[in-house]
Amino acid sequence: MAVNLEIKLGPLELAHPIINASGTFDVLAADKALEEDLFVSFPFAAYIPKTVTLQPRAGNPPPRLQETAAGLLNSIGLANHGIEAFITEDLHRLESLPVPVIASIAGEETEDYGRCAAMLDSREEVAAIELNVSCPNVELDGRALGLDPEKTRQATVLARQATSKFLIVKLTPNVTDIIEVAAAAVDGGADCVSLINTVHGMALDRYSLKPVLGHVTGGLSGPAIKPVALRAVFLVSRELDVPVIGMGGVTTAQDALEFMAAGATAVAVGTASFRDPLAAAMAPELGRLINEHGIGSASELIGVAH
């Protein structure tokens, strides 16, 4: 029996629950390397480009990457060409994708979220907006705005005032109580929360015993953080009434199955796409697993672990 994989994420009707994590799959760059392979079987049911900011950002000094045990540390630092270039250069190219586009924005201060959201509000190519309040690589101590529930609420309020689009707030796990921050986002007008962004971490060079990353500290992703992410998705989705996008170390269809059971409505694949650019093509296998568990559809799987 075929399992219905379609899910609703607010106004977005997705063919299946698998999307990408922002910053891990640049379809415009990958297009050059993968060409038609990519478009014949586009693995994501919605596409989130890399986070953009009001002004262009060069990003952090290299080295920006270090692999760790079943994980990846990065300190990219939100390198992007700015929201204006995103709107004038990227958006129309993304329009040819067979799936909805969710723009991702970040700011250095809460007001930036309102300004960026306002710039995207009239763009039909943008189906929803993700507020990235959780990039750990902007300040040395990882002081993302999303560490503070009140600032998270304020940023969401300002974006909410600027747009009627579906608003997703992407949360950091680097807090004492992620439920409190998630609740603040929802109180500010978020339609959905997305979690988790990377976990604070660092690595030392084995010979020099100095920090490997040019930015000294970074964010950890990959299979190593899956249990951390699963817990956060479980707790937040149990407490709040908005849909949750789950991510953090999702590598296989079994991982996606578990995130949905923990309460995620959609599941994002990130670092696994670096391992294999078509790793996210896991929807058919997810359907098979759902069926194996005697569950009739993807939407019925959501939160069965609660």
Partner: peptide, 17 residues
Amino acid sequence: EAHMACGIGSCQGCVIR
């Protein structure tokens, strides 16, 4: 030479000055 995650321009991890 640089450390890379994706090799296809996605991650922006392999930059040099």
